[in-house]
Simulated scan of single mutants.
Amino acid sequence: MIAEFDIDTQAMQSAFRHAPQIDASIIQQTACESGRLDVVVNVSRAAFDDFERGLDADGTIEDWVRFSDSDDCRRYRLTLTEQGRELVTYPCWSESGAVFLDGNRRRDSWRFRIQFPDEDSLQRYVAYCEDRTIDFSPIRLSRTDSSNATERFGLTPVQAQTLVTASERGFFSIPRECTLEELADEWDISHQALSERLRRGMSSLIESTLR
């Protein structure tokens, strides 16, 4: 099942309060055997200098690295302190085998979408948040079935594989990590044909999920 919910955690909160108009999305969360936990975020529409001063002052962030330096969007890797690790829910959902789909900053909280393997793992996640006084506000819960994704969403197998490949190569990332021409070369088709295939695939996804 896929749960969409708002979650309010003190982790990284001071940094984001330094730039209140910020748009941010979580790209990746990585834990190491040493206990280190890194969170990679994309940040846009921000006073980047204010945000970086907030990173320096945030007690839940041990270290940070800026990966990109454009005027519109920047990518950061944030290494959490022990305190910060206690305030995030990564240990719970990752241990249950859940899949983190996306996380976007909304005002003073995050909106997450996580796919849980079953209802019990979702309930454990909710209990985990309650135990740590992390505010959890459910938005939407949808159940998935065992049918093939191409059947559920009206995609052809080629459209599904193309969308997956484009996502893996960073075509939908901000900033974009792969061009349409590079993807077309990989599929050995023209960039116009690839563009049409992507548009048809995304149109099918929208029709089956949002309408």
Rank of each mutant, 00 (worst) to 15 (best):
R66A: 14
R66W: 09
R66L: 04
F67T: 07
F67N: 15
F67R: 15
F67Y: 11
F67W: 14
S68D: 13
S68T: 15
S68L: 10
S68A: 07
S68C: 07
S68R: 12
S68W: 03
D69L: 02
D69G: 13
D69W: 03
D69Q: 11
D69N: 15
S70I: 06
D71S: 11
C73K: 02
C73I: 09
R74Y: 02
R74W: 04
R74L: 01
R75V: 15
R75E: 10
R75A: 08
R75C: 10
R75P: 03
R75Q: 14
Y76M: 11
Y76R: 06
Y76A: 05
R77H: 06
R77E: 11
L78D: 06
L78M: 10
L78I: 14
T79L: 06
T79N: 03
T79S: 10
L80K: 01
L80Q: 04
L80P: 00
L80F: 02
L80N: 01
T81E: 00
T81R: 01
T81W: 00
E82V: 05
E82R: 09
E82F: 05
E82C: 02
Q83T: 14
Q83R: 13
Q83V: 12
G84S: 05
G84C: 08
G84N: 02
R85T: 07
R85W: 05
E86G: 15
E86K: 12
E86T: 12
E86A: 11
E86L: 13
V88D: 07
V88S: 06
V88N: 08
T89W: 03
T89S: 12
T89K: 04
Y90N: 02
Y90S: 06
Y90I: 04
Y90R: 07
P91K: 03
P91D: 05
P91Y: 05
P91Q: 05
C92H: 13
C92N: 13
C92E: 14
C92K: 12
W93R: 01
W93Q: 01
W93T: 00
S94T: 14
S94I: 12
S94D: 12
S94W: 10
E95W: 10
E95Y: 08
E95C: 08
S96H: 09
S96D: 14
S96A: 15
S96R: 13
G97C: 04
A98H: 03
A98T: 01
V99P: 00
V99N: 06
F100D: 04
F100V: 00
F100P: 02
F100A: 05
L101P: 00
L101Q: 13
L101K: 12
D102N: 15
G103N: 09
G103R: 08
G103Q: 08
